[in-house]
Design a protein around this nucleic acid. Structure first.
Length: 573
RNA sequence: UGGGGAGUCGACAAGUGGUAAGUCAGCGGUCUUUGGAACCGCCAAUCGCAGGUUCGAAUCCUGCCUCCCCAGCCA
């Protein structure tokens, strides 16, 4: 008889992504003496969003895995678009996500002097020249995708003249747009980025850090490659659209004959269903007041997700799970929501809150009597303990937890149907009170004193457990029910002549001011998260105070009743 | 019609010549003092297409098709 081999599980069930494979290879060949240095290089011209989180987790994650470093570097080479508001929010967001750059926070603008010296070097080596062509002329000279460009008439200027002109450009002698410094590469290159790209442009603008010291600003390709080199970056990770720029990135380093060069590697940026991740469009949503600001809980910004109740843990887990590759893809936003539920299910204290209250009177419960029940804080984790919840003759339950005429498979309160009030008693409905409009105003029930705590001594079962709050002890609260900002999986998928605004979900925010929550919630502090039992995960809004409680719905619980209901009534509303 | 990339279940994504992981979604079920969670099961991929090499191809070769990016003095 043969022995069954003992199964040995591999340490990694899933393969390493292509970037880590490359780095593994570099480690093996001892490139950069085994050093790994990455950087996260945002331009401070907007708030960070979930797409940036992917890059942040990658760059900081890789650095940590290889005992390397990851710098935070502001790519602030365009004073017209950048602002300190953004450099501050970016730092806050990266920290909040759980990453630390220690003392390695840099700005491309820190390198302006050095970058300028490099430029003079290029001029001296005949590798760059000052061009007097206007922006429009440059465009004409550049050629097209299928036709080569032609040389600028200024391409053959002498080194002396170039140097003189470049220094005078720095000195502020020439107006904006009148001249550029261009790399002398190849106007016939099939790669348009190599057709003598601009390295410097004149911009008499105040920079958020360097003020008016400069009127000459380096372009991205030039500044980025050299900033990477200055910081001794080994692996420069960026998104796919920069793939075409890699030859220029390499050109800058080679032209200056710099040793120990960083390598640029490109990966696919994150796309999410029902979500827009274009900085331009997000800015438009903010400035056009379609949302309340960059931190509106419907925004995919880190600030928005934070206010929505997303946790750094959930976002990091999401970034781990989406993988890393070079193919364009669109991740289902349900995965993000899943990661949040998964994290919060483990950690969120359970609490009872009634969003749309209807009054319940226990006719056989003594007037004025108050009991306290032990309610488990988190069934997933006994170490969370329990709390006391006050109970009395008049309660509120969810209006949706009652039906006068119950649909098929409806297990909640209805005439003759006994239900459990969570942690309290079994109750039975006797009488429905309505106002003149036929609206139910009160449900008169009887409770079974023998079922204290929720269990029947005779062992009888109920089909449903519903949540409740004591009418007199509960607190009023405002609850903001958030949903997806866009109603289409692809917000940019619009009919002719319309734009993404036409896909805005009119029900992305529903405010309810009539909610009642259990008294313990008065202590909720900004960003404290909870599970409102049977409803979803909610977070205390930063604007919430003990006098005016405000909770945001982060994500609803999975709702299998909703599915049953939809199915049994054939999807009709 | 130039250049640079990419095509593996509905969505992500492993797989690197040895006979297609996993996750999300979806669908059943068990259990349950949350119609939650957990657990079990199902689900689906002739690996873009067509040829070729090979005992054997998602992996190698050839041709084709489709999609994405590039003509800012933005990043």
């Amino acid at each position: 008889m043969e022995e069954t081999p003992t199964a040995v599980l591999p340490p990694e069930t899933s393969g390493r992504d292509f970037i880590r494979q490359i780095i593994d290879g570099d480690q093996e060949s001892d490139k950069h003496a085994g050093r790994v240095a990455t950087r996260f290089p945002p331009e401070p011209n907007g708030y960070l969003h979930i797409g940036h989180a992917k890059s942040i987790c990658l760059n900081f994650g890789v650095a940590a895995e290889y005992q390397g470093t990851c710098n935070l570097r502001f790519d602030d080479t365009n004073p017209l678009k950048e602002d300190v508001e953004y450099v501050e929010s970016i730092q806050e967001d990266v920290h909040w996500l759980g990453f630390d750059w220690a003392d390695r926070m840099y700005y491309a603008s820190d390198y302006f002097e050095k970058l300028y010296e490099f430029a003079e070097q290029l001029i001296k080596d005949g590798k760059a020249y000052v061009c007097d062509l206007s922006a429009e002329e440059v465009r004409e000279y550049r050629g097209t995708l299928t036709e080569p460009g032609k040389d600028s008439p200024y391409r053959q200027r002498s080194v002396e003249e170039n140097l003189d002109l470049f220094r005078r450009m720095r000195g502020g002698e020439f107006p904006d747009g009148s001249r550029t410094l261009r790399a002398r590469i190849d106007m016939a290159s099939p790669n348009i980025n190599l057709r003598d790209p601009a390295l410097y442009r004149i911009r008499k603008a105040t920079h958020h850090r360097t003020g008016d010291r400069w009127c000459l600003y380096p372009m991205y390709d030039y500044a980025h490659a050299l900033s990477d080199w200055i910081e001794r970056i080994t692996h420069s990770l960026c998104t796919l659209e920069f793939e075409d720029h890699r030859p220029l990135y390499d050109w800058c380093l080679e032209a200056l004959n710099l040793p120990d060069r960083p390598r640029q590697i490109e990966f696919a940026r994150l796309n999410l269903t029902y979500t827009l991740l274009s900085k331009r469009k997000l800015l438009h949503l903010v400035t056009g007041k379609y949302v309340s600001g960059w931190d509106d809980p419907r925004m995919p910004t880190i600030a928005g997700l934070r206010r929505r109740g997303y946790t750094p843990e959930a976002i990091r887990e999401f970034c781990d799970r989406i993988g890393l590759a070079k193919r364009d893809s669109v991740v289902d936003v349900a995965l993000l929501e899943h990661c949040l539920r998964e994290d919060l299910n483990r950690r969120a204290p359970r609490v009872m809150a009634v969003l749309d209250p209807v009054k319940v009177v226990l006719t056989n419960y003594p007037e004025g009597q108050v009991e306290e029940f032990d309610a488990v804080n988190n069934p997933e984790d006994p170490s969370h303990g329990s709390r006391k919840v006050p109970f009395s003759r008049e309660l509120y339950i969810e209006r949706d937890d009652f039906r006068e005429i119950p649909p098929p498979k409806y297990h909640r309160l209805s005439p003759g149907q006994e239900v459990r009030l969570r942690w309290a008693y079994l109750v039975r409905l006797d009488e429905i009170v309505k106002d003149e409009n036929g609206t139910v105003t009160e449900l008169r029930c009887t409770y079974d004193p023998a079922t204290r705590g929720g269990d029947a001594p005779d062992g009888r079962k109920v089909k449903s457990t519903i949540h409740w709050v004591s009418a007199s002890h509960s607190l009023p609260a405002e609850v903001r029910l958030y949903d997806r900002l866009f109603s289409s999986p692809d917000p940019d998928d619009v009919p002719e002549g319309k734009d993404f605004l036409s896909n805005l979900n009119p029900e992305s925010l529903v405010v309810s001011t009539t909610c009642r929550v259990e008294p313990g919630l008065s202590q909720a502090k900004a960003l404290d998260f909870f599970q409102f039992e049977r409803l979803g995960y909610f977070v205390a809004d930063p604007d919430s105070t003990p006098e005016r409680l405000i909770f945001n719905r982060s994500v609803a619980l999975r709702d299998s009743w909703a599915k049953i209901e939809k199915k049994t009534r054939g999807g009709k509303p």
